[in-house]
């Protein structure tokens, strides 16, 4: 079966998901991202790689941080960036997703950065481009429903490698609302591909997918047990907006059991790092003392996110 992410030479054509992405490509993205971090320290923070290219930020769902970092990444590569807040435009008037895409292709789009509340929407676009022979146009999934958020997963892996150097000797813990989290799915896929020997998911039964063990992870319903001797603690945001029904008693109750406090973090290794994809709910999944503490690498994650997105965009544009 054709891997919709790869072209006929096995190179990255679209970035849709980290699940099914070969280790060689995942590793290459992390390697290529490293020199891009240095661009931020220059007087002229621009590289000519995407000069003359048009990148369309197509956000069918609201986002500030992800859209902004994609925009900065594309602009540092000298691309022209067009931001479309589609939730307030033509789709409201009844235009279908693929009609929107065809119209933007007619405006000489070179790359689409897509966020959509429906899982699989970026795949639909990639398939459509393939079927209509427009293989010079690339799609980056910036988050689709509960499915995947591959650039977030990549920047998380970059952050882990930056602080921990290797993957093969780590205990990595993902805590919280895995059920609704596309970030978690991308993280788990990447951690498995990169050969992390022990990945634990920690959270209440109502917020973990029923078959989560099939992803090759250890499941803990006890926060203390889950955090013990961890090297990396990846917190997830409690996604109230995606919850249907009574999955939790209250945010306060959640914080009491699953919130990351300094006392709980003390169970992890002394040099453990704490990550969060943002936006943070202080006092719900993470205590402010931890979020602002010396072990938190939440702001470096954001900075690395720009370099990782630059790496993905330039790899795609060159293939």
């Amino acid at each position: 079966m054709r891997n919709p992410q790869l072209n006929k030479n096995g190179e990255l054509q679209h970035l849709l998901s980290l699940d099914g992405l070969p280790l060689s490509i995942l590793g290459a993205i992390l390697d290529i991202a490293a020199p891009f971090t240095e661009v931020a320290e220059r007087e002229v923070k621009k590289l000519p790689l995407l000069r003359g290219k048009s990148v369309f930020n197509l956000f069918f769902e609201n986002s500030t941080r992800t859209r902004t970092t994609f925009e900065i990444a594309a602009k540092r590569l000298s691309a022209d960036v067009i931001n479309l807040n589609v939730s307030t435009s033509s789709t409201k008037k009844g235009e279908t997703l693929l009609d929107t895409i065809d119209n933007l292709c007619a405006m000489q789009a070179d790359m689409f950065v897509v966020r959509h509340e429906s899982s699989g929407a970026p795949y639909l676009i990639a398939d459509h481009l393939h079927a209509t022979g427009r293989n010079h146009i690339h799609v980056i999934n910036a988050g689709d429903g509960r499915h995947a958020h591959p650039t977030q997963g990549l920047l998380d892996m970059y952050t882990i490698r930056h602080f921990k150097k290797e993957f093969h000797n780590l205990i990595v813990v993902v805590v919280g609302d895995v059920l609704h989290s596309r970030v978690a799915r991308s993280q788990l896929a990447a951690l498995t591909t990169l050969g992390v020997p022990e990945v634990r998911v920690v959270g209440p039964r109502t917020l973990l997918p029923t078959d989560v063990e099939r992803l090759g992870v250890r499941v803990c319903h006890d926060m203390n047990e889950g955090l013990r001797d961890a090297d990396v603690v990846m917190m997830l945001r409690l996604q109230n907006e995606r919850m249907n029904g009574a999955l939790l008693p209250s945010p306060q109750e959640y914080f009491k059991v699953w919130g990351l406090t300094p006392e709980k973090l003390a169970l992890a290794k002394p040099d453990a790092i704490v990550m969060h994809p943002g936006p943070m709910n202080r006092g719900v999944e993470i205590d402010s003392t931890v979020a602002d503490g010396g072990q938190a690498v939440i702001l470096p994650q954001v900075t690395f996110g720009i370099a990782v997105r630059m790496a993905v965009m330039s790899m795609l544009a060159g293939n």
Binding site: I32, P35, E38, S314, M315, G318
Partner: peptide, 23 residues
């Protein structure tokens, strides 16, 4: 300096697989 990001054949040959950090 690693000129991978400034090469004029990027459009036809793509990105060098292992660019180094310029310093």
């Amino acid at each position: 300096i690693d000129v991978s990001f400034y090469r004029d054949d990027f459009g036809s040959r793509g990105l060098h697989p292992r660019p180094q950090r310029s310093d």
